[in-house]
Write a protein that binds this DNA or RNA. Structure first.
Lengths: 205, 205
DNA sequence: CAAGGTTCGTGGAAGTTTTCACAATTGTAA
DNA sequence: TTACAATTGTGAAAACTTCCACGAACCTTG
């Protein structure tokens, strides 16, 4: 596989996000590692070092052409086409995610929503039909879906995960506060507000 | 301040979460660094080293008494009392957060909800009155609130943050996909689903 | 009670990440 | 054209994090 540190990969989307902001909200054409770093609280040396793993994108004396760097980062991160995403769980959080307008402009689109609650199946979220989890497997296989977001109760999350993995999903964003067991070739990213808050309370008072 | 690495602090809530799971769902009384590590995908040595920063909580040959370790971790993380939390933003995500049942049992409680949309102010979310952001400052000061969750549009997030900081908030969980500028003594934690997904797509195909 | 198996806590080695600091390149202005 | 200021890319140093491996402690069983 790739020998580029995962921690470096993790910063690229942050750079990309801020570069787009510079381009669209501040109408800038160029920037420097120093300016970008100052805006993000990251050292300029780190930004240069991170980018140097992938090529030479800047010019001495001038800095980086923003749109060019955006394009390069999108290529590196495999964002040159839109990724279709499966959402499992149509509770409050599922609704929020399905209705979130921030996915599409940044490379993702939730295209299917599943739930196991009979009272929800057949209903609609953000214009999408809520389907039974029984159809999860066939849909993923048929549509060759690689990414999923999980927002279901703790009790069923590992079973849902197993189904996703069996069906061919390779990347999961998990909103359920539980560690998932998956094969090595499947990416998992976690989002648990409580864990994040508990980390911060350590530093309070 | 503390000389314990932040990366260690970040793992403690994960340990705590899994320990509670072992206690409540599997009815176990003791565990070992090996067992805990296997369940979390973390090496046993790392768990032992992490805990050793704070004291000696285990026994050779036996391992850790789960309830004792839970209590100790809660003390370390300042979770011995419930933290009241302000929520700013009553959109889809705000609703999901306000209704989330996972805060209370783990040390937090959203007690106030604010929004700037006049059509929302006066309404209700999860039994809480939606108040105008104009009252944010006075509420935080009066109630001595230290923690906030932000789920507002990008365009206003820095202004809201400035108000929170001025009012005395010291820890912010930010769901808006933007880096926040805050003084050194204010903690910020970020949650941006797109950033997380973009990190994963690097490894796909 | 002794032997054998388990597990902790930890010093130091190994590995990883960040920072430093400088040659080289570019643009600007006199 | 030349001097000067800005900025990159990078090798090496410094800082940080993880892992190894072992003595000591503890439990169980015969």
């Amino acid at each position: 596989m790739s020998d580029i540190p995962d921690i470096v990969i993790g910063r690229l989307p942050i750079y990309l996000r801020e570069l787009k902001r510079l381009a669209h909200e501040e109408n800038k054409l160029t920037t420097s590692s120093h300016e970008l770093g100052k805006r993000l609280g990251i050292s300029s040396a780190q930004i240069r070092k991170d980018l140097s793993h992938f090529g030479e994108f800047g010019k001495q004396g001038t800095g980086y052409h923003i749109n060019y760097l955006i394009e390069k980062l999108q290529e590196i991160l495999n964002l040159t086409h839109e990724w279709p995403v499966v959402l499992v769980g149509a509770g409050y959080l599922g609704h929020a995610l399905a209705n979130y307008a921030g996915f599409q402009p940044r490379g993702f689109s939730i295209k299917w929503v599943f739930d196991s609650d009979p009272s929800k199946i057949g209903g609609t979220v953000a214009g999408l039909n809520i389907q039974s989890v029984n159809e999860l497997k066939s849909t993923i296989a048929r549509e060759n879906v690689k990414m999923a977001i999980i927002a279901v109760p703790v009790s069923v999350v590992q079973a849902i995960t197993d189904t996703l993995v069996e069906s061919g999903v390779k990347a999961i964003l998990n909103y359920v506060p539980v560690h998932l067991n998956v094969p090595e070739d499947v990416q998992v990213s976690y989002s648990d507000p409580v864990t994040q808050m508990q980390r911060m309370t350590f530093y309070l008072e």
